[in-house]
Design a protein around this nucleic acid. Sequence first.
DNA 1: CCGCATCCGGGGCGATACTG
DNA 2: CAGTATCGCCCCGGATGCGG
Lengths: 212, 212
Amino acid sequence: MRSYGQYCAIAKALDVVGDRWTLLIVRELLLAGPRRYTDLRQGLPGIATNLLADRLRELEQADVVRSEAAPPPVATPLYGLTGRGQALGPVVLELGRWGTPLMAAGPAGDDDFRSHWLSFVVTEFLADQAPGDQAVQIELRTGEEPVTVEASEGSVRLRGGPADDPRLVLSATPHVMVGLLAGRLDLAGARARGLRAEGDVKVLRRVRAAAA
Amino acid sequence: MRSYGQYCAIAKALDVVGDRWTLLIVRELLLAGPRRYTDLRQGLPGIATNLLADRLRELEQADVVRSEAAPPPVATPLYGLTGRGQALGPVVLELGRWGTPLMAAGPAGDDDFRSHWLSFVVTEFLADQAPGDQAVQIELRTGEEPVTVEASEGSVRLRGGPADDPRLVLSATPHVMVGLLAGRLDLAGARARGLRAEGDVKVLRRVRAAAA
DNA sequence: CCGCATCCGGGGCGATACTG
DNA sequence: CAGTATCGCCCCGGATGCGG
């Protein structure tokens, strides 16, 4: 990107990460850890492949991304964040906080959605309300690949794939799912908007105060 | 800006503030409060005048900026932040934190500098170490208009213009001034790099631990 | 002089095709 | 699978114009 030419910390930061798509690439690597080129494209619907290659190269040069050559046999390269890249976590977090109200209106007609993006909502709005209890799993289905919320020992995490032993399975549109997790909708409101729940809905209280 | 088309809080945020120059405009309004069009240009060296007008209009439509029509006679409009605009403070703050290490190398040959940009460094790195003592003023000169650091009652602020009654006047290049305030240089190191101090240098301890 | 609007050249971006 | 190559287009940058 063309430099702003300003001796100012914010301008210098934007010289590095102010380009289009750049912070979304960082988002992907923050949420899902080191990923392959094709997986990055999967998580960045709409990006042109030449732009992704360009950005990865620029970010590598700026010491934000490191391409880890995978083990010798036939493996493909992995892209991961450096320390400086991880340090962008608070920036992306604050951007997400600021952007959350913009989610209330629901997705635009042609908006894409990836279930691992729920990871931000989960870490922002959910917390383990009963750290002493045994671990529980909640499976979330939004039409795509399912993801699993795991609460155990005081922390709540999101990981990809179905749950081994779900106490609850929630199926809803992304809009309703986000609304329920972020607290904009309660369980009744979410049901009225199409949420389907199979299992023990009271387990929602484990991860969100006043959820069920 | 063209939407990313992703139902994700970070992408939605960047749909609004991801355009070039947008966050720097917010920076100006955060640091200096409501300003006129010409003053904004002053604080945004390098921006094209049509872009500033475009961005202000877009930000107004996005409920980030509000143009306050000044009193009737002949006044010019003032641009200020709405509540949503003020809420971008943490985003800009984290960006500045991340960008601060990029300042260590010093300004590029043709970098511009405005003394009110020091406001970020001041609020980030300085604190009133003796809240009980009487208020003190330190005047900073970097070649441009002087600015004044005021410490009183536990807080440290930066305002434009010379000090009424400075206990200390510091003159240095932007690079050295930032280095001293951010703690990358101590007083001796800053002097060796051209800092000139007139007055009581010990007053630096009032605002920065281990400064003098 | 201030606050923009208009015009125009160049480069970043978007979409697709293509290759090792 | 992991990119590179190519080509329009639109955003951006710089200059100028113009009304209040």
